Structure formats: structure tokens, C-alpha cells
Simulated scan of single mutants.
Amino acid sequence: MIDHAHDLASVRDATERLLTAVAELDNASVTEPSRLPGWSRGHVLAHLARNADALVNVLDGRPMYASADARDSDIERDASRPLDVQLADLRESTARFQETGAAPADWARTVALRNGVTDSASRVPFRRWIEVELHHVDLGIGYELEDLPEEFVERETGFLAERFTGHPGVPPTHLTDGTRAWTTGRRDTTSPEVTVTGPAPDLLGWLCGRRGGSGLTVAGGSLPALPPL
């Protein structure tokens, strides 16, 4: 069962870790490339701030973004700001998200995200947690997939396995870190099941497009090509 209050606390803790780490940078470092193609660290920080506001919109019943173009232009506009401005903006947008999340609400209601995606309101804090943790890794400042909280790794792996379940382009796939197991891909009995085994951070890295699968072993076929998130 999803506990939105627990996830809000996890978002707060993850954001504090990120802010503490980013505060050690300087203005020049913010302009350097992140691990995301075409984005500087400033782009990543701007995205995190605007995503917090976008999820406030979601919880308040408004469109997540005015448009895809507006989302992209807002990130581009804010990417080149000095470090202190980036930090202040992220703190303030995070506070708005936390305040909205703490307000009494029907957490079982369905909310609208981007591109026609809907979800339970109760899962919005976890979605924000995903943004903060993975983009902290994307900054390339010493926080790696191995540093992610164990609970987060397990839940995000399950979340992504569920996302790819039934996808026609992904063969039936069994995932395991040797202790836990997940299934994903097409639901058919005519294709052989591929088994992908490896450390939990490598499994997650492959599922979320941060690692190519070099730390994984595959039985029953080749490592499936996953669609973009």
C-alpha cells in the first residue's frame, strides 16, 4: 500500500541530500555538462524546480505544464542562472510541493500527468522522489546509483518493471538481483523468457536508461532493448 506521507518525508530527505551536495559547487560547475545529453547541470536543477511546481499543478487539478514547449522553454530560460539562484528556487519550489502534499486531500483520486498518463494522487510523492534521486545521479557530482536508498531502488525497479509489462517491444523478461525478482515485458507464452541477473543498482540503471547493462548477465537471449521513458 502506498504511504504518501512516508514518501513526502523521503522527498524532503532526498532533496536535502541534493541541496547539500550542490551547495559545494560553484557557478562554473553549474554550467558544465550533466550526464543527460544536451543538458548542463543548470538544466537539471532548473528541471527539478519546475517539476516540483508542475506536480503542485497536478495535485491541485491543473494541467501539469501549459504545454511541452512551455516546459522546455522554462528549463532553458532557468538553466544559466547562478548557483545561489538555482538553490533558492529549488528550495522554494520544494517547499510549495511539500505544503501542497501536506494539505488534507483525497489521496485515492486519479490525477492527470503528462502525455495522457494518469495515476493515483497517492503516488505523486513517489514520482517526485524518483525525479530527485535519479537527477541527483545525473548531475555527476559523486552521487551514484549505489548510493540510492535500498527502499527506493527496490520500489523504482518494481515501478519500471510494471511500466514495461505488456509492452509489445519487450520480450517476456525475468529480473533478479539474487534475492528479489520482478517480471516485465510481453505477456505471451510463445516467446522464451529472458532472465536478467545482476546487482540491484545495475538492474535499476538499465531499466531507467542510466546504464547499458555491462554489470548484468543474461540467459535465454540477449539483453532486451527498452523503450525510452
Rank of each mutant, 00 (worst) to 15 (best):
S67Y: 11
Q98H: 10
V194R: 01
E144M: 00
G212Q: 10
T118C: 02
R81P: 06
R96N: 12
E32K: 10
F159T: 12
D147V: 08
W107Q: 07
T157F: 02
R109A: 13
A102Y: 02
D138Y: 06
R77T: 15
V85C: 01
A112Q: 14
V117P: 01
R163V: 15
R35S: 14
P82L: 03
S67L: 08
T189V: 14
V117G: 00
P201H: 03
F97S: 01
P227E: 05
E146D: 15
V56M: 04
Q98S: 05
T15F: 01
G220D: 13
G198D: 12
E32M: 11
A95K: 05
R96I: 09
T100L: 00
T217Q: 11
L83F: 09
T118R: 08
L216A: 05
L229V: 13
N27S: 06
N115T: 13
R17K: 09
T179P: 02
N57H: 15
W206G: 03
W129G: 04
T195H: 02
P228Y: 01
N27H: 10
Y65F: 15
R210N: 06
F97V: 02
L113T: 12
A200H: 07
D26P: 04
T157G: 00
G215W: 06
H47L: 07
A14E: 13
P33L: 02
G205L: 11
G101Q: 09
L134M: 12
D147G: 10
R155N: 13
P33W: 09
G101W: 09
